[in-house]
Design a binder for these strands. Structure first.
Lengths: 176, 176
DNA sequence: TCGGAATAGTTGCCTGGGCAACGGTTGTAA
DNA sequence: TTACAACCGTTGCCCAGGCAACTATTCCGA
């Protein structure tokens, strides 16, 4: 689990003499999974800030809004971003304040809000995309072949399905 | 990316009508990876708090301290936990305050600190273990065969190695 | 030996985000 | 119709944690 710490230090380098052996195949798999996840997200986040761009959460929101192409309501985004209701409210506050999205009244439900992406939002997303391309290209797309990627999907997809099956799926998202 | 939101709500259930299609094999793999990671960590965290136990960060620290079996220094933990220096300092503050670890002077380097796990710490770790066993058993170990787990390790291990090769490895941890 | 650079850990300041409670709205059953 | 429950989004309060600056110590080259 290295490099998962976002910008651990500038010049202070670490050379851990401590052993943390892994017990079995599943623990090793979990370590690899965790390591890969943090490696990619931390690096993506870092490259974004280095480029003077907003972080990963903003990217997720902008991407979804551009993809849907129509006004979307906060409750419909909850499944796709890693924040709670209140967190999302304030995330959208910041994004609206920055002029990347707009809030309007939802005609069909006066409790709700309509969110739409602005031109500035689309522009910002356009500037974030190459960063993502680069990071994922170097550490993911360029490392795994297409077949291997599909294998990852198949293997880890089972993990997701396990909760849909066993426990009450606390989020009934559509399976694309 | 569902269920990744920690305890999104009590009775409010989500039924997203919004499509978020995935472009290609690598995006799908990334979605699966991200989903699996959040599913497991969120669930583990939730079950821990439900059981009145500390969270995942404390588990990581306690686990490592018990494994090494000897006093360990904060700088040697940095590679293995997802926090920065300052975050680790305060994490250890809380754990010491809770009586799970102890700080003592490091004889070989007066800048440093020695950390050791207390009996209470070992006891807490012992109570956390079954929770981890259960969660990972249901959603990981029980879902992937041993061969599949090894495959995950091999595939995602490549991701880690990609940064060791291309970019400056900002953390030269030992490879177990 | 000595002075500057690197390192270990701590702290002040600030932001992001979770939980719980709230007001306004919609749905539903009596 | 009228209660009452569920829901949507917001807000107050709080905590975890990152960045940068700081002190104390160690390392290293002149």
């Amino acid at each position: 689990m290295c490099g998962m710490t976002p910008a651990t230090a500038k010049s202070e380098q670490v050379d851990s003499p401590v052993k943390a052996p892994v017990d079995n195949a599943h623990d090793a798999a979990w370590q690899a999974l965790r390591g890969a996840y943090h490696l990619l997200t931390d690096r993506f986040e870092k490259e974004l800030t280095d480029a003077g761009l907003p972080g990963l959460a903003w990217y997720d929101v902008l991407l979804m809004m551009e993809r849907t192409g129509q006004p979307i309501r906060p409750k419909d985004m909850l499944c796709h971003v890693s924040v709670t209701k209140s967190g999302l409210t304030r995330l959208l506050d910041r994004m609206e304040k920055a002029g990347l999205i707009e809030r309007s009244y939802c005609p069909s439900d006066r409790r709700g809000t309509f969110l739409s992406i602005t031109d500035d939002g689309r522009d910002t997303l356009a500037r974030m995309r190459p960063v993502r391309e680069r990071v994922f290209g170097e550490n993911f797309t360029g490392v795994l072949s297409r077949d291997e990627a599909e294998e990852v999907t198949a293997l880890l997809g089972q993990v997701r399905e396990s909760t849909f099956a066993s426990l009450s799926a606390e989020c009934a998202c559509d399976e694309e």
